[in-house]
Write a protein that binds this DNA or RNA. Structure first.
Lengths: 304, 304
DNA sequence: CTCATTGATAAGCAATGCTTATTTTACCAT
DNA sequence: ATGGTAAAATAAGCATTGCTTATCAATGAG
């Protein structure tokens, strides 16, 4: 059974005339006669009566044609949808991201993308970077916005955001009076830090720096939520190191200070996706993410 | 686009393995490779990624396959339904009938047919014989149960019922005392008769007989409904001639008498249908109608 | 490093399905 | 009646399609 055969029968049922039908289908009349007979023979049914120079649809034909119409429409829909999907206009796009992406990069990209591709079914899920990689490789995610974890896998990545860290201190702390603060001064205080694996990236970035300055990271408290962290700082229990974009959140009792230490680590956000072209929507979403040059830190620092 | 192509793609999406898929489809692996590539090239999309010895369905493929599945099911349904319709098991059957058929022949046939073919959508409509013929020829009816009107058209017909007429008289009428009544005696009384075209058949049958006996049909009253006719008789306004099956209806004040006249006309009911085989259900319904030999009246009379 | 597995490609051949030409059938006008 | 005409079926030839077998290329496992 073939699209052309179905179409021939449906059109013939509209025209009730072999000549005109053949013309509409762009074939000759004998070709149409053969096509129709072939279907009738294959199915063992009579779809049209051709008696007395007048074509009529039989009851069997009426029933067959009703379903044939649906089948044709479904086939056309399949093709049309596949082509729309190929242009990234329909389908699903599974996005994963770390918490920090949700403060700035993610909402901007998502809202712009949604406006441009409203028919794409966007699925968002927040998790930690290690989990993101895993789901990405398993095909459960299309794109992840995460910290630049080292990974030698067949994944593509692009730096999409880069910002300095700031120190968060109680307003009444002696160090809070200055316009910036040095790591060496902070290092003696207890640090309020995200719980467990969530803080891996921060520890990796600042661990070596602290060590070089002859200090350890003194963990005062591990917390899960950002508001809890800020409120612990405001109550004088310690300090925190956070990406600068978090200062958008205004909390009484804390103050944000730039780090005076040169070559201080920057918080980076990368987009990661599988290189195979399984989902055309991926490349379109990527075009809505900022493009940041992977420059050395000191150069990038100037821009902030 | 072709059923085999759709099926190939759907099966491949289940197996994710060209060899096994080809085997399931009963073709060789190269044939399958070609089939799939051909569809992808025609649509200009990629449905499967074949990288690294591992087949995966792309997002485009996922969307295409969902519709392809529906299309396949619809095609299979079309074939199955057409074949069921060809066996008279589904579809519509438009039955037309005259009022008199509804007293005996029609309800018996319909209820037996319904039990045997419950999925056929039976449409019943009552009208007079002339109308029935017209709708039959126009294709609006499949079968009509009607009076044997003369018609030289391409219609087939079969006698399905034959019964004598009885005279209906008031119980207290002098003629009602006998066990039968002669036309000559009735002819002097006014006849209660169906209105207009509905009485054509009765007039055609009895007109010549009355004339042969030297009488005219004296119309006392024309009525539309059978109960009205009987109640007029019971009130002594006149007599009526009705097919014997109507005596199933028991009405006080009237009595039914056989006609003593030899060779009196019989009420006949024929099934009429178009000879072309446009609706397979027709022949099955016909097998549920009684088969009466078209014998001369006097022979048939004996059986009553 | 070799071998096995798997999908793509190539070449040949059979079958399908189109085209043109012709026949059949029924309707219609003379 | 009877020949003309319109329309669908049938026939014959040919081009295309799509299958098969054989082979190649790539990748991953032992």
């Amino acid at each position: 059974m073939d699209q052309a055969q179905l179409k021939a029968i449906v059109v013939l049922s509209e025209e009730l005339h072999f000549g005109r039908t053949a013309q509409r289908l762009g074939i000759t009349q004998p070709a149409l006669s053969q096509k129709v007979s072939k279907v009738e023979n294959e199915l063992g049914v009579i779809l049209f009566t051709r008696a007395h120079r007048r074509i009529a649809v039989t009851e069997v034909g009426r029933i067959f044609i009703a379903h044939a119409r649906s089948a044709l429409i479904e086939m056309e829909t399949a093709v049309r949808m596949a082509q729309k999907a190929s242009a990234g206009q329909v389908g699903q796009l599974h996005l994963g991201f770390v918490e920090n992406a949700s403060f700035d990069v993610l909402p901007k990209a998502v809202s712009a993308y949604r406006r441009r591709f409203p028919e794409v079914d966007l699925r968002l899920s927040e998790m930690i970077s290690a989990e993101l990689l895993e789901k990405l490789l398993a095909g459960r995610l299309d794109i992840a916005l995460m910290r630049p974890i080292k990974t030698e896998l067949e994944l593509k990545r692009r730096l999409v955001h880069q910002e300095p860290y700031v120190a968060v201190l109680p307003v009444d702390h002696p160090l809070a009076a200055a316009s910036s603060v040095r790591i060496e001064d902070l290092a003696k205080l207890p640090m309020i830090i995200a719980a467990g694996a969530k803080a891996t990236y921060l520890r990796e970035q600042f661990g070596p720096l602290f060590a070089r300055l002859g200090h350890d990271i003194v963990v005062g408290q591990e917390v899960n939520q950002l508001p809890a962290m800020l409120s612990l700082v405001s109550s004088g229990i310690g300090y925190a190191l956070l990406p600068k974009s978090v200062t958008n959140i205004n909390v009484p009792g804390v103050t944000y200070l730039p780090l005076a230490t040169p070559n201080a680590p920057q918080a980076e956000l990368v987009a990661v996706w599988r290189g195979d072209e399984t989902n055309p929507a991926i490349k379109y979403f990527l075009s809505f993410l900022p493009r940041v040059d992977e420059t050395p830190w000191e150069v990038a620092s100037r821009s902030h």
